[in-house]
Write a protein that binds this DNA or RNA. Structure first.
Length: 113
RNA sequence: UUAACAAAUCGGACAGUCGCCUUUAAUUAGGAGGAAAGUCCGAACUUCCAUUCCCGAUUCGUCGGGUCUAAAAGAGUAGCGGGCAAUUCCCGUCAUUCGCGAGAAAGAGGUGCGAACAGAGACGCUUCAAUCGAAAGAAAGAAGCACCCCUCGGGGUGAGCCUUAAGAGUAAUCUUAAGGGUGAAACGGCUAAAUCCUUACUUGGAAGCAAGAACAAAUCCCGCAAGGGAAAAAAGUAGUUCGCUCGAGGCAAAGAGUAAUCUUUGUCCCAGAUAGAUGACUGUUUAAAACAGAAUUCGGCUUACGGGUUUGUUAAGGUA
RNA sequence: GCCGAAGUGGCGGAACUGGCAGACGCGUAGCACUCAAAAUGCUAUGGGGGCAACCCCGUGAGAGUUCAAGUCUCUCCUUCGGCA
C-alpha cells in the first residue's frame, strides 16, 4: 500500500489526467500521466467491474499493482499524476508477468528520474 | 464391519523481512466471513406525513415547539400450543404423505362469486344419464372401498361416515364404548400464495445511513470601513466533523423449561475505512489449495463451498 | 452501499382477474403481377417426431402451488435505472 500523500484521490484529479494526459499501453494495463505542478507524485488505480464480478478478484489485482508500484516508487520523477487502468486480461496473468509488464511501462524516459 | 439418518464444529498454523488502516507516550495494541454474498423477510435507528393531547404565537385561516399512537381506513397472520424486539423465523405437538427404519416433506378460519376443454356428473337440490373397449386399458383433476357366500341377483362381514357418552390433553386432536343410517346416492373424494365479502388476533403510514444532524469557506454581492448576506444572487454550496460501533454483544458457570428460549452471577472489549486499510516475498509443517472481502447495526432465511473432526441414532451382516 | 425495474419468434411488441402462447408491425422465403425490378396482393414462417390424424418440447434457468402457470410463490442468472 502506498502512503496517503502518494495517492490520487479526488474525482477532479482523475478527470484532469484523463482529459489532458498522455497514454502508454501494455498487456495488463494502460497508463495515463500528467505533470501536476506539485512536488509529490500521485498514483491512482482503476479496476472496473468488467474485470471481474467478484470483489475478491478486484481487490487482489489492485493490491498486486499497488505492491509493484510501491517497490518502484523511488525511481519515479516527482510532480506527476498517474492513473493505471487495468485491462480484462490481467486476471489471467501471474504476479510476475504483471510486474514485468508494469515495470516496462514505468521505465519510459518521461517518468524515470 | 458396511450402508444410512440427524445434529454440532473447524474454515490453516508458526517464524522472519518490507508496507497499509485504526489506536497509543511508545512497532504499544488490534485489524474481514461462515457465509462478510443474494437483498428474500423482520427489527432497531433517523427524517417526512397523518393522528391525540399540551404549551406558545396568531391577521382566528392557521403556524411553531413538545408529546402520544385512541378510533377509522389500510396492512399483516391463519391446524394447535409456546419462544422472540419482530418475522414468511425457531421449538414442541397434531393430522396427512413418503421411507424396512433412524427420519423426511408439507399444512390458508368461515361463506360466496368464478371455475376453460373433455365428461352423464366438477358438489346445494332436483331431473337426466349409466362413457369407449373382448381385455390390458383409454378418456378425465374425479369414473365411485375391500373381502366372503351362493340360486347371478342378492345376502353377509369389515372399513369409511354421522350422533351421543366416558376418558386423556392447555389445545389441535386422540382412545374406548353405545347407537344410527348407508352399497346408487348416505358419506368421502377438486378448488390456487390471484379476486370479493367475512371471523379471530396483531398493527399508525412512508422512505431509507447516499437516512439524517452540526460546523462551514473561497469567489461573488452590499458597504468608505467595521461588518453584513432574509433586498437579489453565489451558498447553508465545496469541504470538515458527527451518525460509526459497548451491542436484543461474546465467553464461562448455575438455575427454569421436553425444547426453542429465558433468568442470575462472573468475566472480556473483538475492524471502523472513505479512490476505500489485511498485501508481497521467504522458510517449516506430506500439500496450503474450497466458496469467497466488512461499508449504519442486529435477528432470520436462501444460495456457494476443497478437505476434515466430533456426537447421537437406525438397518443389515459378523464375532463373543 | 441502499432502493427499484425488466427478460416472450430473426427484431420490435401483445397476451385483461391463471383457462387454445405468440395478436399486431417489421424482416425473411415462395407465388402472382412485370421485358426486369420496385410497389402491391396472396401464402408460409419456434424446435422435434409421424405417411397422416395428431403427439411431445418451447415465455432467461431451476424448483413449488394448482386439474391447469408467460401470469402466483421461492432460488439462481443476465441487463438497465435512481439516490451524495
Amino acid at each position: 500500500m502506498l502512503p496517503k500523500e502518494n495517492r490520487l484521490k479526488k474525482e477532479k484529479e482523475f478527470e484532469a489526467v484523463f482529459k489532458g494526459g498522455r497514454t502508454l499501453k501494455g498487456k495488463s494495463a494502460f497508463i495515463r500521466y500528467l505533470i501536476n505542478g506539485t512536488d509529490k507524485t500521485r498514483i491512482g488505480f482503476v479496476v472496473s467491474k468488467k474485470i471481474s464480478k467478484l470483489a475478491v478478484v478486484r481487490n487482489k489485482t489492485k493490491r498486486r499493482m499497488r505492491e509493484i508500484v510501491r517497490l518502484k516508487k523511488d525511481k519515479l520523477k516527482e510532480g506527476l499524476s498517474i492513473v493505471i487502468v487495468s485491462l480484462p486480461s490481467i486476471t489471467k496473468l501471474t504476479y510476475k508477468e504483471i510486474k514485468e509488464d508494469l515495470e516496462n511501462l514505468l521505465n519510459k524516459e518521461e517518468l524515470i528520474k
